[in-house]
Every structure is written in structure tokens, then in C-alpha cells.
Amino acid sequence: MSSFRVAAVVTLRRSIADVQGTTVEQALHIIGFPRIEHVRIGKYIEMNVVAASAEEARAYVEEACRRLLANPVIEDYRVTEVEPVAELQVG
């Protein structure tokens, strides 16, 4: 078993108005970033997972997203990173 650093991003579903994203987008336009569009604000969650493989670590976190990290009524999730955690070298 190895340890993996896994990141998940949870955002509001596309069908749902993201008021926060819209407000931030307007602010970006005002300060000089008119080419930025469709801003969505989400949550970034990272964690260490002990698993036999990167695929297993990813599946494990996807299950955690379904059970707790995202609410399927309003949110989508995606696992964005799965990286092995470097072993600590002692001595």
C-alpha cells in the first residue's frame, strides 16, 4: 500500500446560477479583465489516501464525494489530482 495525495473539486451544477461566481466575474470586468467569462466558485478539498494504486485512491475519493463531500442535488465533483506522496527519507 502507498500513500497518495488526492484533490477533489466540488462546484455548483451547471444548471444552477452561481451568484458568487457572477459577482466575482463582474468585479474582474471592472478591474480590467473583460475577457474572463463564466466564473464558477467551488470548493477545493485535498487529502492523503492509503491505497494499492492511484486508480484505487481515485475511486475511494469519488465514493467519499458521493457520500459526503458533494451534494448531488446541487453540486458536481471531479477528482483533479492523484499524486504519490514522497516517502520520508530518515537519516
Binding site: 455548483l12 444552477i16 451568484v19 458568487q20 459577482t23 451534494n71 442535488v73 446541487i74
Partner: peptide, 15 residues
């Protein structure tokens, strides 16, 4: 959240 009632909550429209 526990599913005894339907639906979910977003931040207030006015934030």
C-alpha cells in the same frame, strides 16, 4: 441532507 426531505440549500441570492 439526510434525505428525509427533498431539496438542498444554496447561499442566499443576495449573498
Amino acid at each position: 441532507e439526510i434525505g428525509l426531505l427533498p431539496g438542498a440549500f444554496l447561499r442566499n441570492r443576495c449573498l
